[in-house]
Design a protein around this nucleic acid. Structure first.
Length: 246
DNA sequence: TTTCGGAAGCCCCAGAGTGC
DNA sequence: GCACTCTGGGGCTTCCGAAA
């Protein structure tokens, strides 16, 4: 039979909980922590000191990652390098961009936004949920399949490994079978596209395919080579597209 | 600019609990 | 019983914001 442990009375649990909360950006008050864990203020003070020592040990060169006390807020917080962590503002912006893109399936967008929200405090999470709730509840996916993340990742592997692939392309009622040399992924107008050279009658032509229309991707078993002078440039291609719009 | 008060930070000591 | 850890209390210094 498993022995029950009083977690709140356990020092290790208390230290981990304090650290986790500060990691999410929470400002912790010594008095309330003392009441919550039923220990003295001195003990909480010691906990902060031990966490400071821990941070010095694991981040010896990062002077930005330290526990600081804020008099106005009457609490302790973790001051950390913004280079390494997502801020509440960044989580909000990324969530809005994702929702506005309509480019992922509902289950994918839900999973992604839930993971993003784990970077921030409970209060900020509620704030962001309040801001995005309407977009989130009424989210409409513009794609026809529900595995965009996996599909895109797999295609990027073929691009990196220069693998020639075949796939079925569902366009309206037609299924068109293609053999292509994949060179890049592009996001534009709510959709992800695969940019690839098609091989028809020994001629190569650059084409774009909506990734959610691509099915049954298979390796041909041959690799391709593109000379550096002909190397595909995503940014150059995007620039040309924008130029055409004007 | 100076003074003041509150809180943090640090050090020392003692008691309780635990493992060997 | 001894050694070790954890915790709380007391006392002192330091820091910092507010008020004069």
């Amino acid at each position: 039979m498993r022995k029950s442990i009083n977690l709140k009375g356990n020092k290790g649990f208390r230290l981990l909980l304090i650290y986790e909360r500060m990691n999410k950006g929470e400002v912790l008050n010594k008095d309330s922590l003392s009441k919550e864990f039923n220990v003295s203020l001195k003990t909480i003070q010691r906990d902060f000191n031990e966490l400071r020592i821990y941070l010095r040990e694991i981040y010896p060169f990062e002077i930005e990652t330290i526990i600081k006390y804020d008099r106005k807020l009457n609490g302790y917080y973790l001051k950390r390098s913004e280079i390494d962590w997502l801020t509440k503002e960044e989580v909000l912006i990324i969530s809005l961009i994702l929702l506005g893109s309509h480019s992922l399936a509902k289950n994918e967008i839900t999973s992604l936004i839930n993971k993003l929200k784990k970077h921030i405090t409970y209060y900020n999470k509620k704030h962001i949920e309040n801001i995005i709730s309407d977009d989130f509840d009424k989210y409409i996916s513009f794609i026809s399949n529900g595995k965009m993340l996996q599909s895109i990742w797999k295609l990027t592997e073929y691009i990196t490994n220069r693998e020639i692939i075949s796939f079925k392309y569902k366009l309206f009622e037609n299924n068109i079978y293609n053999i292509v040399k994949p060179v890049s992924i592009l996001f534009r107008n709510y959709h992800f596209y695969l940019i690839a050279y098609t091989i028809v009658e020994d001629k190569e032509e650059l084409q774009i395919f909506r990734i959610d229309y691509i099915e049954e991707v298979r390796l041909i078993g041959e690799k391709f080579y593109i000379p550096y002078s002909n190397k595909f440039s995503n940014s150059e291609y995007r620039r040309k597209l924008l130029k055409n719009i004007k």
